[in-house]
Every structure is written in C-alpha cells, then in structure tokens.
Design a protein around this nucleic acid. Structure first.
Lengths: 154, 154
DNA sequence: TTTGACAGTTCTATTTTAGAACTATAGCCT
DNA sequence: AGGCTATAGTTCTAAAATAGAACTGTCAAA
C-alpha cells in the first residue's frame, strides 16, 4: 500500500484514514477535545515519545486539523488548537467513545459521562439520516457509485 | 505505551482504538460493510499482504467483531461476517466517510453516495443528542467523570 | 496427473516506533 | 554573573511492525 498517497484515493474512508487512522493520532485528538493544547501536556498525559508527538502534531497541522498558535513571544512558544476542520472530527471521536462504552465496558461503569449543554441532559450520540431523521443502521443503507469513483473501491 | 493492554484503559476511546485504531483494520472494515467476506477478496481489493490480512482478521475475530463461518466443507473454507458488535461500528465508519466527503474531496465529487432504504433518499449521516435530538457539536458538550474513571484520562 | 482456486504460513528486508539523551531559549533566584 | 527550571523540540540506537515474495496444504476439474 502506498500510504503516502492514501489521501488521494477515490474513497472518502481512505482519505480520512490517511489523516487520523492511527493510534497516536486518535489519542492526540482525544486530548485536543479535552482542551489539551501544549506539547508538554500532550506528552505527559499520553506518555507518547517526544519524537512521535512532534511528528504527529506536524502532520495534523499540515492537514489543517490543528493550528500552531503562539501564546508567548520570547521565548517563542506555541500551542495547538483545533480548526473547524478538526472540530468536525468530533462525530468520529464520539462514535468511537460510544462504541467503547457499549462494547468494551467493564463492571466499573463508564469512564466519562457527556452532558449536552443545550438540553442539560446526559446523552449518547446517535447517528441519524439527514433526510428523514431516523437512526441509521448498516443494513438499511444502499451504496451507489458517485461521480468521484474511479475503480472498485469504496 | 503498552498497546497490549490498551483495551483495558479507563477510557472508552482507548478501548476502541485498541481494536480498530489502525489503517488496515479500518480499511478491512470498509470492505466488510461493502459485503466482502472472503480472504482472497479482501486481499485483492486492498492489496494488503496476506500475512497482515491473516493477522488482522484473527484479531477482529478475537474481539468478536467478525465471525469465521464455514461456507464449504471439503475443502474447509471460511468467510468472515460482521457480528452485531461489528455492525455497531457503522457509525464510526460512516462518520469517517462523511468527514472525508466534507474535508478531503476533490473536483471529481464523491466516490460513493448513500441511499437510506427506509426513506428512499440520498443522505448524509448526522450525529444528534439521544435526549433532545438536536445535532451535536463539540463546544456544546460538557464532560463529567463517570464511575469507571481512574485517573486523569478520558 | 496436472492445473488452478482458496486460505493461509514462513521468510528476509525495510520502515516505523520506543526510549533515552541532548539542544535551545529565556525567566528567575542567589 | 552563574546556575536552576520550564517549554518545545531534535537526534540517536534498539526493538517492533510491515512489505513483498515465496511456499504449503486441500480439494475439484480437465
């Protein structure tokens, strides 16, 4: 597999996987959504090697998911903040958290609970159809080739 | 990082990442949702090495995401079918496809279109709150420690 | 009896990751 | 002035994972 051009495959899943499809990147994004922004903070909460952290942050900046913003002149220091493109990854992260809650739980219960400020309740995320609003299930979906399809890939 | 015990971390995202948090596994799951079931079919559509395919399929079976079902006695041959636990990964896959459609598209348009059989329309997936039904955004969510939380992880 | 399909396993070379040490800038303390 | 600390990285070597190709075993069909 040519991982270096995976983001140009005629498949939206491949393109997403090219950007966020590895363990460390997903864990870094979790920290971002928990409002972690600084190199040392990522490093100490994840126990990731500094080398890989540096490399992954660069990649996320390169793909426009994080912005590297100075928070101190002299000495120049930067923090990493989610862009809108990065914030839009929220459904992916939440879908993964929800699946983990549902299928990988233990007797101690959930690690985190999520409150929807808008309605004030603890919630779970639900994926619905943009057209009819009903919850979506794999078996109710039919896939068609779209205009950007080249070959026999999804 | 102790990747071998990531599925026991007190964090639902980590536990999910432990199971589906790598490139090949996500691409294999895409094929599963496109109704690919057999070793040779996965191998030829993904161009994954047979070694890794074998290893990943075993892992997905071990975690209860695929079932290895015989479709021929003599010679014994098996195919790999999504369990309910595997089908429940659909929101993760669809959220990734949707993000790719939105943020990684090119001038050729979408590779695939999705039709909701229930309502008959082409749709996008939307993540909503289970309690009030409104679309969810990261900034409207407040996180609380749940009973299964041990330390300062999500 | 030979060929081909299918579902793997085994082997070596290359790439990626882990782990630790090192660099650079600047503020603060004595 | 000299040394300590904080932050944000870079560099180095060893270990682990992946790529790529060849090989194995079972059976059916020609």
């Amino acid at each position: 597999m040519k991982w270096d051009t995976l983001d140009e495959e005629p498949c939206s899943l491949s393109r997403t996987v090219a950007v966020v499809g590895d363990r460390w990147t997903l864990l870094i994004l979790r920290e971002c959504f928990l409002r972690v922004r600084r190199f040392e903070a990522f490093q100490s909460s994840l126990q990731i090697t500094r080398h890989l952290l540096s490399e992954r942050l660069k990649k996320l900046v390169r793909f426009g998911i994080l912005r590297r913003v100075p928070y101190s002149e002299s000495p120049k220091r930067y923090e990493y903040i989610l862009t809108q493109k990065g914030l839009d990854l929220y459904p992916i992260i939440m879908a993964m958290v929800h699946w983990g809650d549902t299928h990988m739980g233990d007797e101690r219960g959930r690690p985190l609970l999520h409150e929807h400020k808008t309605c004030g309740k603890l919630f779970d995320p639900v994926m619905v159809c943009s057209e009819c609003g009903e919850p979506l299930h794999a078996k109710q979906v039919h896939v068609h080739a779209g205009p950007g399809r080249r070959e026999a890939v999804g």
